[in-house]
């Protein structure tokens, strides 16, 4: 999995980072967006819907920061 460190970034920066770098993952692989921003919880799934990628869910990074998981589908 590719993990994007977006700690401390405010919206829309985590989503811009996701859009810029999700292609670093192979199709079928996961991208984890680690973000402290409250909007990421809603905007990562919304981005997936708008860009035709798959939102897998939310877990925690090693330090307990929320991590939003995206599967690259195309």
């Amino acid at each position: 999995m590719i993990e994007l460190d977006c700690r401390g970034q405010l919206c829309p920066l985590p989503i811009i980072e996701l859009a810029r770098r999700y292609t670093e993952a192979e199709v079928g692989d996961l991208v984890g967006v680690v973000a402290t921003d409250a909007a990421a919880r809603y905007d990562v799934p919304a981005w997936c819907r708008m860009r035709g990628q798959e939102y897998v869910g939310e877990d925690l990074a090693d330090d307990g920061t929320p991590r939003y998981l995206v599967r690259r589908t195309s």
């Binding site: 919206c11 829309p12 989503i15 909007a39 919880r41 809603y42 905007d43 799934p45 919304a46 819907r49």
Partner: peptide, 11 residues
Amino acid sequence: VLAAMGALTHG
């Protein structure tokens, strides 16, 4: 409201 609808909240 936007969050509950699953809508994009930024921009």
